[in-house]
Simulated scan of single mutants.
Amino acid sequence: MGYEKIELVEPIYELQDKETERQHYFLELYLEVSDDNITKFIKSFKGLGKGDEWQYEGSKKELSFNPPKPRTLTLWSSYLQYKNRRRAYWEDKFKEMRKQRKERAEKFLSSFQDDLEDELASNKRISKEIEMDGQVFPHLKGKGKNEIAFANKTTWDIYKEVTGVEVANTEQNVNLNVDADVKQETNATLKAEKLIKLKQRMDEMDYD
């Protein structure tokens, strides 16, 4: 084999046609070290042989091949293009990491969106239960509906941020306007209750 740079085929950090397994083994070790200082990397094999424990900045590995002499490994790193292949290796690795992070984020947001939709459905169900419960005083119904309306508005705002969708359906508009409607309803109900009690007291009074 001559010492001219080999022609690389993608993915260039994988074993090439004009590369031995032993040569590629030491390339793989170089791909995983914390920096690209080739001189430091070559010196790290001094006095070691196959089966010995190779240590590099805290990591340890039992060598599967005898390390070449420093001059030989220097030549390998040149015509086998260690640095170019290391750069391509880490570019692909970072690209894959970004892809995985994006997939995890999308999965989380999808699950979170489901939770928000469940919460909106639950709020709607509770609001109906409050409305239909004949044992709840009117002013307590108003207070409960008011709290549900506030919870719905908060949930819709979060939902819009998560999905990026401008929600403009009737149900949302109703939920957002319930707050004002409930306050009016509550005030009217309380006034009616006071009038009823006043009339009862007047009916019970003895004018003799």
Rank of each mutant, 00 (worst) to 15 (best):
E19Q: 08
D118H: 06
K194D: 11
P11K: 11
K197L: 14
K143Q: 11
E166T: 14
L116C: 02
M202Q: 11
N123Q: 06
G134Q: 04
N123M: 02
E10K: 09
L109C: 04
A88H: 02
N187Y: 03
E204W: 00
D35Y: 01
L15C: 03
R201D: 11
P138D: 12
R22F: 06
Q23A: 01
E57V: 01
L80D: 02
D133V: 05
V136K: 09
R22L: 13
A149G: 09
K191F: 05
E171Q: 15
R201C: 08
L63P: 12
V167M: 10
R85S: 06
H139R: 15
M202D: 12
L176W: 10
F137L: 10
F112C: 01
E204A: 10
F137A: 15
Y30V: 09
W54P: 10
R201V: 02
D36Y: 01
D35R: 06
F41P: 13
F150A: 13
L75A: 07
F45S: 08
Y82G: 09
H24Q: 00
K197W: 05
E166S: 13
R22Q: 11
A192V: 09
W76I: 02
K194W: 06
A151P: 00
T39G: 12
K143C: 01
N37M: 00
L29N: 05
Q100C: 01
L15A: 05
E10L: 02
K5L: 00
L195C: 05
N152E: 11
E32G: 05
I196K: 05
T163D: 15
R98L: 12
D181I: 06
I130D: 00
L140G: 03
S78V: 01
V165A: 14
Y79G: 01
D115E: 14
E129F: 04
R71F: 13
G49T: 10
N187T: 07
K124S: 07
E193W: 09
E131H: 12
L31Y: 13
N84R: 15
G51V: 03
Q16Y: 06
N169K: 06
F112I: 00
K194G: 04
